[in-house]
Design a protein around this nucleic acid. Structure first.
Length: 591
RNA sequence: GGAGCCGUAGUUCAAUGGAUAGAAUUCCCGGCUUCGAACCGGUAGGUUACAGGUUCGAGUCCUGUCGGCUCCA
């Protein structure tokens, strides 16, 4: 059940329930709370109750319901006026009341400390399923940013102890075989020896995979070459499976190179996983598990293969063991889910995987239910659309990818030379570097998160390097400015300030907006939409800038007003910082 | 052939079924002797792909058509 955590909405709830009851309609307080929205124009009021729900039971128009509720409404502390405007009841609060209930809890930290929902299910969020022996590209970045932000949003909303993050790298499979095949047959072990101590060995592996893939495709048109290559690849795969031979040793070694590259990326992105599931580890068990289910009579046989038939549910046949006894992706995902359910007692499971896997996950979830896992009903595939290049899809097979770390490097250099060069003589090298990293993170992560998940992102490097308009750095900049205000203006608002002085329209608009942070956070978590938090934070910064422009703090008419305005700025800064943190974006002290 | 996602301003995107569909960007105009101009304000730009339906109310839900992308055999 959702708590009613937002103070102003909460204040209106009980009096409204009482007034509505007097009209002859009984509503739950949570229902009333839910229907409290913001009027389109702040001049109309700070919160509004839409009387549509009441009008139905009352069998009167919403407008009449509004005026009737108004008659029965008792005086509410802090409310300056109540107007019935069409189907809405508009409430206006005093400036003092807004400040007391919005700014004070933000400045004391109370707004950020309590989780928003009790009794949440224990949830695992799996994201980032990169393959070893391939290079991470900007498409993987979308997954990484989405998954990380979801973990942060869920922890904030439901409590740290409820959320477990996991990753599932693909460290075995034909892509590995192709990469090793190419190194052995077309590069030579001399070059491999040279690469052993090279810092870019992880990236190099990715290039070897692409080259191998292209080579194999080219040679596939010559029948004898095709057969020869196929034999060689099968040999490699056999060795990997049986865990012995030169290719197994080579796999063990090169796998580490890729893993180190992944970890470098995760480190840059401040991403940590509670649990790493390796495909090589899950693989062998998955076939055994499926055989066990088959022996227990829970699976069917069809043309020598084993699986489940969901044709009548329009989900097709879910193939789990091929006639040669080998497994597929679904086989692994069933074993993986079993481990999550049984080892971690997971009640809910979220998978962040691109939209191509939609049918796959429907089949897997349906199969899990068939196998007796009730938790399958609370499995959710968060599908997102791809990141494409202006001239079409990216593919590491074809080798036309933009490596993720290339974007990172370009962005950091761009920030450093275009925006931070003016501080070159003033700041230390360390600070110049760390702020470049911080702002680049803001730009990249915000760019990946701001768009709705099921719309594709067309990636254009030059567009991404433009940091104006709605961007992460815009929000970070507002924070940095607030931070410098607080340092420069020497008044202390911590011992109290007079909120009743904040009556300028941009001050009121900003306060009113700050009210919604936790509501937005929970919405983002529940709907798996970090994008809506992006929009909220952008609007927060926008409203702060308007306030900053309209209301001078340093030249305020009185010391009391100065204090109050600075408190408002500080509360905004804290909101931006805490909100950005849920997107995985840090803030710089100055920039 | 079957299924899924998408279609909103010139462009890139917003809008838990609710009040006048909003931002950014581009073009043009204005604002630094003033707390940080990576900023602010203004002008212009719309048959929400199309046609029906559901209801007090539809960009949003349902059906169909067209277009783009993806998955399955």
């Amino acid at each position: 059940m959702n708590l009613m955590f937002e103070p102003l909405r909460k204040k209106l709830t009980l009096p409204l329930v009482t007034a509505i009851e007097k009209c002859g309609v009984v509503l739950l307080d949570t229902d009333v709370y839910k229907f409290l929205v913001e009027p389109p124009n702040p001049e109309m009021g700070h919160l509004a109750f839409g009387c549509f729900v009441v009008s139905k039971s009352l069998k009167k128009s919403p407008a009449i319901a509004a005026s009737e509720i108004k008659i029965h409404l008792e005086k509410i502390a802090g409310v300056e006026s109540v107007e019935a405007a069409g189907p809405y009841l508009n409430f206006k609060f005093s400036a003092l009341f807004l400040a007391e209930n919005i700014l004070k809890p933000i400045l004391s930290g109370k707004t950020f400390s309590e989780k928003l929902v009790n009794d949440a299910p224990k949830t695992m969020i799996e994201y980032s399923q990169p393959n070893t022996h391939k290079e991470l590209h900007v498409g993987h970045m979308r997954n990484l940013c989405l998954g990380d932000s979801l973990v942060r949003l869920h922890r904030r909303s439901y409590g740290d102890d409820k959320i477990i993050s996991s990753t599932f790298p693909g460290d075995v499979g034909t892509h590995v075989a192709k990469c090793l095949w190419y190194i052995k047959n077309h590069v030579g072990l001399n070059i491999l020896d040279q690469k052993r101590n090279s810092p870019d060995r992880g990236e190099w592996l990715g290039q070897m995979y692409s080259a191998g893939n292209i080579k194999l495709e080219d040679e596939a048109i010559v029948p004898e070459k095709f057969e020869k290559n196929k034999k060689e690849l099968t040999l490699i795969l056999k060795q990997l499976e049986s865990a012995q031979g030169e290719f197994f040793d080579l796999w063990k070694e090169t796998r580490e190179w890729s893993v180190q590259l992944m970890q470098k990326t995760y480190q840059w992105a401040d991403v940590q996983f509670d649990k790493w599931y390796w495909e090589s580890d899950v693989d062998a068990d998955s076939v055994r598990t499926i055989k066990k289910y088959f022996d227990a009579g829970q699976l069917i046989e069809s043309q020598g293969a084993i699986g489940l038939d969901f044709e009548n549910e329009k989900l097709g046949f879910c193939l789990l063991l091929k006639s040669d006894g080998t497994g597929l992706y679904a086989t692994k995902d069933i074993e993986l889910a079993r481990r999550k359910f049984e080892d971690y007692k997971i009640e809910k499971s979220i998978y962040v995987v691109d939209q191509r896997q939609a049918l796959h996950f429907k089949q897997v979830f349906r199969s899990l239910l068939h196998l007796g896992f009730e938790q399958a009903k609370d499995c959710f595939h968060l599908q997102y659309n791809f990141v494409e290049l202006p001239d079409g899809a990216m593919s590491s097979r074809k080798g036309n990818i933009i490596p993720l770390m290339l974007l990172v490097d370009k962005m950091q250099n761009h920030v450093r030379t275009e925006y931070l060069s003016k501080y070159e003589s003033e700041w230390s090298i360390d600070e110049l570097n760390s702020v470049s990293v911080c702002v680049a993170k803001g730009a990249i992560k915000y760019g990946m998160l701001r768009q709705d998940t099921n719309k594709k992102i067309v990636f254009d490097m030059n567009e991404w390097l433009k940091l104006d308009g709605e961007s992460g750095p815009f929000i970070q900049y507002s924070y940095a400015r607030i931070n410098s205000l607080i340092k420069k203006i020497n008044v202390n608002f911590n011992d109290g300030f007079d909120g009743s002085l904040l009556i300028h329209s941009t001050e009121i608009k900003l306060m009113q907006h700050l009210m919604n942070l936790n509501t937005q956070i929970l919405l983002s978590a529940e709907n798996y939409k970090p994008a809506s938090l992006c929009t909220y934070l952008y609007e927060t910064a926008k409203k702060f800038n308007a306030f900053y422009h309209d209301c001078s703090i340093n030249q305020a008419e009185s010391i009391e007003l100065k204090k109050s305005r600075l408190a408002l700025a500080a509360a905004t800064g804290e909101t931006l910082k805490q909100g950005l943190a849920l997107l995985g974006i840090p803030v710089p002290e100055r920039m």
